[in-house]
Simulated assay, not measured.
Amino acid sequence: MTTYRFAFTFLVGLLAVASTARAQQTALTQQFAGSTILLANGDTLRGPVTLRRDQDVLMMAQPDGTITTLSAVAINSFAVKGENRDSRRGTSYYDNFYDARNGYYYGNPMYSSRRTEESDLNRVRVFRTYRWNRGNDYSDFKSPAFFEQLSNGPRMLLRRESLMQRTVPTSGPYGYGGYGYGNPYGAGRYAGTYTEMKDDFFLASPTGDVIALRSPKKDLLNVFRGQAKQLEQYAKQNQLSFTVARELAFIVNYANSLVKEEAK
């Protein structure tokens, strides 16, 4: 009975920690050794850049030591490579989306074997600018923002990343401090807070509208209603998750392929 009571109390303590955790978005800065930037006016820039995700700006050092800051309104799209490794990321984060961006999916005749991508800091990442309501579904105001392209189109899977600092209460015998309920990413191991990376997925329509996939499986199946059963079966057969970026990209590519076949 004593053991059972201890286990129950410990579980309640952990649930209390999880339910009362607070999250706050903080600045996320990423540095890349190389980039190709297509400006809205048609010009092209190349060179090392710093990407401020929270501000949707690129900063590029000039030969004279000055810094050129480019906002999303001035950029059509850009590709970057040579990312500085972030210890808060798991190795799977560095998957290469080259195949997915080119429309491949498991079962595609041109993509006959499932393979695991090795961690690759030199992989090319592609970003596009879309006008977005910043998550305010009740507002008609949209401003330019950067989205990473993960799949091919015509409906394209997009991603935005953010850095979240979570605060966990330390009170109670089974709280954060007592049992070392620490940061799962290994950074910020001090009582009361930890930092984690957060991915938000979106779907771009052929007309350029951005649809938030807050619940990726539910929302994606809602968009592809006519193909929902086939998508669920495809994901199950290939053991694909709707919450893993690279796997979701292949699901979106498969969905697009079904729509194209039905349109013939």
Rank of each mutant, 00 (worst) to 15 (best):
L213H: 01
R128S: 11
E261K: 07
L150S: 03
F224I: 07
N122V: 06
F141P: 07
R114S: 02
Y94M: 13
L163E: 03
P48L: 08
G180D: 10
T129M: 14
V124N: 05
V126D: 06
R115V: 13
D140E: 14
S113V: 11
Q55R: 15
F146A: 14
G208T: 00
G13N: 00
T193L: 07
F78C: 10
G135H: 05
E262Q: 12
N84C: 10
F6T: 08
G186A: 01
K217Q: 13
R22G: 04
M164V: 11
Y181G: 03
V259A: 05
G107L: 09
E262M: 08
I37T: 10
V223L: 11
D43I: 05
K236L: 01
L150R: 03
L258R: 03
V124Q: 11
P109H: 02
D43N: 07
Q239K: 12
F32Q: 01
L39I: 08
L157A: 02
T129P: 15
G82L: 11
E261S: 09
L14M: 05
K264G: 15
L11P: 00
N41K: 14
G13K: 01
P206G: 03
R88M: 14
N136F: 12
Y181A: 06
A40S: 11
K260N: 04
G153Q: 00
Q24T: 07
K142Q: 15
E232P: 08
A204L: 06
Q31R: 10
R125Q: 05
T9L: 03
P154Q: 05
L11Y: 00
A235H: 03
G135C: 04
A33W: 02
R89D: 14
T50H: 05
D99P: 07
Y98T: 14
R115N: 12
Q149A: 15
Q149M: 15
F78A: 13
T195P: 05
T129I: 12
N238C: 08
L231W: 07
F201P: 06
T170F: 05
Y104L: 14
K81E: 07
Q233S: 12
P154M: 06
K264D: 10
G107M: 07
R101N: 12
G13W: 03
A7R: 13
D200C: 08
A255D: 01
F224H: 05
P63V: 01
V73T: 13
T195M: 08
D200Q: 11
N84R: 13
A74M: 12
Y176V: 02
L258N: 01
Q55M: 11
L51M: 11
V49W: 04
D209F: 07
N256F: 01
F146K: 15
T207W: 04
E83G: 15
V259M: 04
F97S: 10
L150H: 02
L15P: 00
G186Q: 02
R101C: 08
R115H: 13
T20W: 09
G188R: 11
V17K: 02
R125Y: 02
L158A: 04
A145T: 08
E148Q: 13
D56Q: 06
R101Q: 12
G172F: 01
K81V: 12
Y93A: 15
S77Q: 15
F250Y: 03
P206N: 01
V168K: 03
A263S: 02
F250Q: 01
Q230A: 07
G226P: 09
A21P: 01
Y105C: 05
R114V: 03
R89C: 15
Y130V: 12
V126Y: 13
Y179Q: 00
A33T: 10
